[in-house]
Amino acid sequence: MDESLCHLLDGLWTGGSALLCEPGVRSVYAAELARRADAVDRAPTEGPEQVRARARAAEALCSVVHLPPGAPGSWWHRYAEDAAGIALDAARAARAAGHDVEAFLPAGPYREAHRHTRADDVRLTAGGRPGETLACLRLWLRVGDQVYPGRVVYRGDA
């Protein structure tokens, strides 16, 4: 097990140590990941419920990071992009089928990404350049009138 790998999963992470090499942390995270994967299996195969379920599963997968997160182009970064891509594909399919659904990854400079997140973003003092979004933990999602803000890891200003 990678000793520097942690989870920042909203609702489980409270700002303290969340190292996945710790058995208690790993078991709580694994149980939540299993719940989210089960929700994907239970949701109708197309439509808003499937999009929400896939976005929540992607959040659980994308919330497993190194601190600072892997650099763009690294295999870890590509893994997170692939996980988020599954939810984005479901949103595109639902939209094409006529559902009022929209989703995207908050990225780029943090001042821009933060327009689509809320106050629970994770600020780091290392990695990347100051003001840069380092990783997307949760997609921004809108289903009908409901908006689900994104969540990111970013490098704070120097």
Score class of each variant (00 low, 15 high):
Asp2Tyr: 00
Ser4Trp: 13
Leu5Ser: 03
Cys6Asp: 05
Cys6Thr: 08
Asp10Val: 13
Leu12Arg: 12
Leu12Tyr: 10
Gly15Lys: 01
Ser17Asp: 15
Leu20Asn: 03
Pro23Gly: 10
Pro23Gln: 08
Gly24Thr: 13
Val25Lys: 06
Tyr29Leu: 03
Ala30Tyr: 05
Ala31Glu: 13
Leu33Cys: 07
Arg35Cys: 12
Ala37Leu: 05
Ala37Tyr: 01
Ala37Glu: 14
Asp38Gln: 15
Ala39Pro: 00
Asp41Ala: 15
Ala43Tyr: 00
Pro44Lys: 07
Gly47Tyr: 03
Pro48Thr: 09
Glu49Trp: 06
Val51Pro: 02
Arg54Asp: 04
Arg54Ala: 04
Ala55Arg: 04
Leu61Cys: 10
Cys62Asp: 10
Cys62Phe: 07
Cys62Arg: 07
Ser63Trp: 05
Val65Lys: 02
His66Lys: 15
Pro68Thr: 03
Pro68Ala: 10
Ala71Cys: 11
Gly73His: 10
Ser74Pro: 05
Trp76Lys: 08
Trp76Met: 10
His77Gln: 09
Ala80Trp: 11
Asp89His: 11
Ala90Tyr: 00
Ala91Trp: 03
Ala96Arg: 14
Ala97Phe: 06
Ala97Cys: 08
Gly98Pro: 00
Gly98Lys: 04
Asp100Ala: 11
Val101Ala: 04
Ala107Tyr: 04
Gly108Trp: 05
Pro109Glu: 15
Pro109Gly: 15
Pro109Phe: 11
Glu112Tyr: 09
His114Trp: 05
Thr117Ala: 08
Thr117Cys: 15
Val122Ser: 01
Arg123Asp: 06
Leu124Gln: 10
Leu124Val: 09
Ala126Trp: 12
Pro130His: 10
Pro130Cys: 10
Gly131Ser: 09
Gly131Cys: 06
Gly131Asn: 07
Glu132Asp: 11
Leu134Glu: 01
Leu137Pro: 00
Leu137Glu: 01
Arg138Cys: 10
Leu139Asp: 02
Trp140Gly: 04
Trp140Lys: 02
Trp140His: 11
Leu141Asp: 07
Val143Phe: 00
Gly144Ala: 12
Val147His: 09
Tyr148Trp: 15
Gly150Tyr: 07
Arg151His: 07
Arg151Cys: 01
Val152Ser: 05
Val153Trp: 01
Arg155Ile: 01
